[in-house]
Design a protein around this nucleic acid. Structure first.
Length: 511
RNA sequence: GGGGCGGUAGCCAAGUGGCUAAGGCAACGGAUUGCAAAUCCGUCACGCGCGGGUUCGACUCCCGCUCGCCCCUCCA
């Protein structure tokens, strides 16, 4: 079945065929580790995860690599030229504050003034969040998730190559710049070609910082700065690398080729980051192409608006999972959210459309996760838990595959699965096999046995269990006022109360 | 100003140049229930941002407009 993906490079849907049949080589821009990753970041990371899992679903072997940006870099807009405060210094301040408030546990970062400790702390948090949400590559750390600070040598090597090939120069300020005019394809990915950048009314280029550059769009490869908080020796002086160079280097180094198959990231990275990556890699390799397919996820809105710290809608993964979000009316939701629910919420709409993260949507996703989980439980009981092998002749699996192959149509795929999940398939073993295969992509039916995931509440929490028995007792006595009161108590603690033939069962709400 | 992406029912969200425009949630009616929940049955877009055009026929193709989002400065 041909796979079709939208390629930002051509602005068209294209049939995807890997350059090398044996392995798809894929690189995803990962997080900066100066702070907790937020759900918008994870929309992008989960999108990459879906690309990878889809490829695997169709039988490809995928080598997926992601970076961790732990080099400081600068915070303000002159930053392309390396001015402003270092992000690690800003992070150090924040960590000190967060330690006071308890957001960062005491002892988690022994010395906040050590940028490596800050970076490692946030890296660990990122990995934990990513694993919780089922981002596969996170389980391949450190093999396939690379730290920029551990690859400075490779960056210097590439900068040397660029200098030798005439794509870079050392400016009068000692900074090594990439010469965009030396690369004729600059602008191909984003449409921001040099003439357009110049003529754009909003394309203001500040005067002074540009003085050392040959062209205003030239960007920094190495900045000598012995005062920088993170610095390394180099032929161009002690300093630090530019932002874009790490991805060019690490993709090439770890994936082992000059031309990779797929490169993913958030839409904001199209320009300048990915444009510059292309210029660097192609400049160094002499190839016309860096990544054959560029795929980008659109931004995430929260309750219809841009995420904003002042509006309190700047949610981290842990904020959502631990119930620290607000409902549409601004009330604290207060209910813990199952990771599968957040995962589904962040993957369920098409990656090329804006996604609106809402509390209502989260509740909706919780219902879907619960239904799919219960469906699997039913199938397991019906077939003794032994799934049968099924192929694309299985109708639902065929529809699911068609949707995925059509530029990752997850919503369409769910549209096929959900009505099916209300049925009682004639061959439960085959159905279970199909569901398991689909879940290899979706990853939203909790991995623990379905029964445990849904019913853990009643068995694990003895207090809740006691209340359930009291409720049964009250009902047996026909003391309905008491029964209703007890039910209210259980519900208030975040459980759904159900009446079953075996008595009252409480299930923890998934969101 | 330039480069892109998107606008389908109360909400989320598929889809097609021509049968009755998927699916989910919510809502409503019914079964069930002490009442609920869960479950089951049923109802729920004569219309797909607006205006033109192409066509025998467009929500689907083209043009204009409008709204939203991203980028042109660090940003998933």
């Amino acid at each position: 079945m041909p796979l079709r993906f939208y390629n930002t490079l051509s602005n068209e849907l294209e049939t995807f065929v890997p350059a090398d049949d044996a392995t798809v080589r894929m690189y995803s821009c990962g997080p900066t580790v100066y702070d907790f990753a937020h759900i918008g970041n994870f929309r992008s990371f989960l999108f990459a995860d879906i690309v990878r899992r889809t490829l695997e679903f169709f039988g490809h072997n995928v080598h997926h690599v992601m970076n961790i940006t732990d080099v400081g870099h600068m915070t303000d807009d002159a930053g392309a030229d390396g001015a402003g405060e270092d992000k690690m210094q800003a992070a150090a301040r924040r960590v000190k504050e967060d330690k006071k408030s308890g957001r960062v546990p005491d002892g988690a970062v022994a010395d906040p003034d050590d940028p490596y400790q800050i970076a490692q702390y946030y890296t660990d948090c990122f990995l934990e969040d990513a694993r919780t949400l089922g981002v596969k590559v996170a389980f391949e750390y450190p093999d396939n998730i690379l730290h920029a600070t551990k690859n400075i040598d490779a960056m210097q090597e590439m900068i040397t190559q660029l200098l030798e090939r005439g794509h870079a120069y050392v400016g009068p300020d000692g900074v090594v710049y990439y010469s965009v005019e030396s690369f004729p394809h600059y602008g191909r990915l984003s449409g921001n070609t040099l003439d357009r950048l110049m003529s754009g009314a909003g394309g203001r280029v500040s005067e002074e910082n540009q003085a050392s550059k040959r062209h205003p769009a030239d960007f920094m490869l190495w900045k000598p700065d012995s005062t920088h908080i993170m610095k390394w020796d180099s032929p161009w002086g002690t300093g630090y690398p530019g932002w874009h160079i790490e991805c060019s280097c690490m993709a090439r180094k770890r994936l082992g080729t000059d031309v990779i198959d797929i490169h993913t990231g958030g839409e904001d990275l199209i320009f300048p980051h990915h444009e510059c990556e292309i210029a660097q890699t192609c400049g160094a390799t002499g190839e016309e192409t860096f990544a054959r397919f560029w795929m980008h996820a659109r931004f995430l809105l929260v309750e219809g608006e841009k995420m904003s710290k002042s509006k309190g809608s700047f949610y981290t993964v842990r904020d959502v999972l631990e119930g620290r979000i607000r409902t549409e009316s601004g009330q604290p939701a207060g209910v813990r959210v199952h990771p599968a629910v957040l995962r589904l919420e962040l993957i369920k709409s098409h990656y090329r459309g804006n996604m609106n993260f809402t509390h209502k949507g989260l509740m909706d996703s919780a219902g879907v996760v619960r239904r799919l989980t219960e469906f699997r439980t039913r199938l397991e009981h019906a077939c003794g838990g032994i799934a049968a092998e099924v192929d694309f002749d299985y109708p639902i699996l065929a529809r699911f595959a068609d949707c995925l192959a059509d530029d990752l149509n997850i919503a369409g795929a769910l549209g096929a699965i959900l009505p099916w999940a209300s049925t009682n398939p004639e061959d439960p073993a085959a159905a279970l096999g199909a569901l398991n295969r689909m879940n290899e992509v979706l990853g939203v039916v909790p991995l623990a046995t379905a029964a445990a995931a849904v019913e853990d509440a009643g068995s694990e929490n003895s207090e809740i269990e006691t209340l359930c028995r009291q409720l049964d007792e009250a009902r047996a006595q026909k003391d309905y006022a008491t029964a209703d009161a007890i039910r209210g108590q259980i519900q208030e603690r975040g459980y759904d109360v159900k009446t079953s033939p075996a008595g009252t069962v409480a299930e923890r709400r998934l969101a």
